[in-house]
Design a protein around this nucleic acid. Structure first.
Lengths: 190, 190
DNA sequence: AAGGTGGTAGACCGATCGGTTTCCCCGCTT
DNA sequence: AAGCGGGGAAACCGATCGGTCTACCACCTT
């Protein structure tokens, strides 16, 4: 049948790979990757040229879902710009409370692969760029005095909170929302 | 002579190891570690039980220097609490401008070794705890409304900025000092 | 029923991992 | 000068790395 064609097999492998990479780190072995996907090495290497490509593709595959979780309505502008920004951090705090939380997978990939030219690093930078752009757009809508500055400040808080919560040295119950509120107020955003 | 006794040999190995771990990541091989220290594996394993121990010891060895760079006078309270906090971020921004900057080595270790029980993770958590304590003490001295909250906010900014600058996706010229100033003002600190 | 076809398990490859051991030389002691 | 001990180079160990390939099996077509 058509539901088990190449594409969906590929997607299932990428979903399993994304979860395994996230749980174990990017240095996890190909064997473990295949085991978690329930597929043989031969099959995986028929779809992907290398482990690096699997990593990059698995990060890319999660991107739409990642973005949709932080920003629910892509077009439907639900709420004020301020509310939409705060919503991102509420989702972050919620996610970080889960026991399996390990921090933002895109920032983790950038840190673990120190190589900026790695295909997965390119994907990860794209994810960060997208969120920065979202913050900047909302900051402009909200009339911040310096939208670019505010957006970069919010990224600092977002990535700092993700990294610290993921490392288990911070708990974030209301911490980021309190911080972001202070920064929004200081920026003159309504 | 006494200057080339066990202790100083050990320290030289740890200094070289710290630099190599920082440059290459914690997954660097023992062989490269020995090469950079100019010592054979045999000698290194006479001083350290395992690579994990070398990593933990090398992070611990850098700790006093790391702390002194962020907080110049340990006892001599130079400047107001606000100035002393801002000084930390000025040093961070200065360090992050160097081309070899890779982010805070302690946060990187926590992210790369996902194991919180790893001896190096314990050292790294200690480094983070120390800075948090410094911020909290200054926040109290400065009369912040909620010193603990402010200290945690500053750690968010510190680690977020270090991670992003280290990953090469942020530049930090004045970004953290502007952010911290806004947070200090919002906290009611004088 | 016969003959593909595609995917699986897993052997296999050379390289490298962390760690141990052998061999040998070099410098110190007496 | 003879002997000793520490350390460097490198062989070596079993395990694992990323990646390839063979052997087989289950199913689909005709």
């Amino acid at each position: 049948m058509a539901t088990t064609d190449k594409a969906s097999t590929r997607d299932r492998q990428l979903d399993a790979a994304a979860e395994t990479f996230y749980r174990e780190g990017v240095s996890v072995g190909v064997e473990a990757l295949c085991r978690s996907a329930g597929v043989s090495k031969r099959s995986m290497y028929q779809l992907f040229a290398s482990k690096d490509e699997v990593l990059a593709a698995s990060l890319a595959r999660r991107l739409p879902e990642y973005e949709a979780r932080l920003v629910p309505g892509p077009q439907e502008e639900t709420g004020t710009p301020r509310e939409r920004i705060l919503h991102v951090f509420e989702r972050l705090e919620k996610a970080s409370a889960e026991p399996a939380y390990q921090g933002c997978p895109y920032l983790a990939a950038l840190v673990e692969l120190k190589d900026p030219g790695h295909p997965a690093s390119v994907v990860a930078r794209g994810a960060k760029e997208w969120l920065l752009g979202f913050f900047r757009a909302r900051a402009e809508e909200g009339g911040a005095r310096d939208a670019e500055l505010l957006a970069r400040q919010l990224m600092l808080v977002f990535d700092g909170a993700g990294a610290r919560a993921g490392a288990g040295i911070e708990t974030l119950d209301g911490l980021t929302t309190a911080t972001v509120t202070a920064l929004l107020d200081a920026s003159g955003m309504r």
